[in-house]
Design a protein around this nucleic acid. Structure first.
Lengths: 132, 132
DNA sequence: CAGCATCCAAAAGGATACTG
DNA sequence: CAGTATCCTTTTGGATGCTG
């Protein structure tokens, strides 16, 4: 009843801070922004895909890295893995509700890249000319 | 005048596609989602910061990686470097207009992490318990 | 089809020492 | 203060071969 009964959380602030190297948020950041994380999550934003579909959708990814990154994302609760009992078994991956909420902001990020890659490349050329 | 005079761009589609491993968008993606890229850009979203301020704001980053990542972001036209002619010289970094437009979506992304790191950690524990 | 295990090369990145 | 240079360790990740 008393105000003093409110227990202060000491381990971590309610809002996790990726700027703090010891906060779990830093690990979450690294998983998502891993080399293939953003692309996998965004690809699944268009709906469930099978392993081989992901493999062809995402240019240049190896089966090892696709499998490995998917496992991490499944463990993080962002992606769900479903085995269809056919022969041969088909395995499909889809975003969880949690992953879906994330994919929206990642989609915005990829949209920015789509629009502005040309500007970045221009800037690179200008920079290389000016500093030789 | 004729429709045929419209020249088709063959090198790259107007919208750059990070899913294509040969598209420059892939490099842009890698620069921004590099280990320290998101944190540096988001930190600068709050206004210009000096080298040492960035160093203390971003926990765990080494001077080498801060310097190296900043150089990449400056070359990409996302960050501007300004030397103030004092003694000793102070160097401040700020977002360019281009970088500012990006930092908005990155801020949303970090906001998602702030809100949902707890959910991810929960999912990890559940997963580890279920699969042992 | 959907992976996993192993090996190995390359890249990333930290520690340290030094500079204008 | 704001870096750079070097060294060296760790991590990443691709290639290959094999499995249910």
């Amino acid at each position: 009843m008393a105000v003093g009964s409110q227990v202060r959380k000491v381990d971590w602030p309610v809002t996790s801070d990726a700027f703090n190297s010891d906060c779990p948020a830093r690990e979450v950041l690294s998983h998502i922004t891993s080399r293939w994380g953003v692309l996998i999550l965004t690809a699944l934003g268009g709906g469930p895909l099978r392993f081989s579909e992901l493999h062809t959708t995402i240019g240049g990814i190896s089966e090892k890295m696709l499998s490995q990154t998917l496992r991490t994302l499944v463990r993080d609760g962002l992606v769900a893995r479903a085995v269809e009992a056919t022969t041969p078994p088909r395995v499909s991956y889809r975003l969880t509700e949690l992953g879906d909420s994330l994919a929206e902001s990642l989609q915005q990020f990829l949209d920015w890249i789509r629009l502005h890659t040309v500007d970045v490349v221009d800037a690179q050329h200008r920079h290389d000319r000016e500093t030789r």
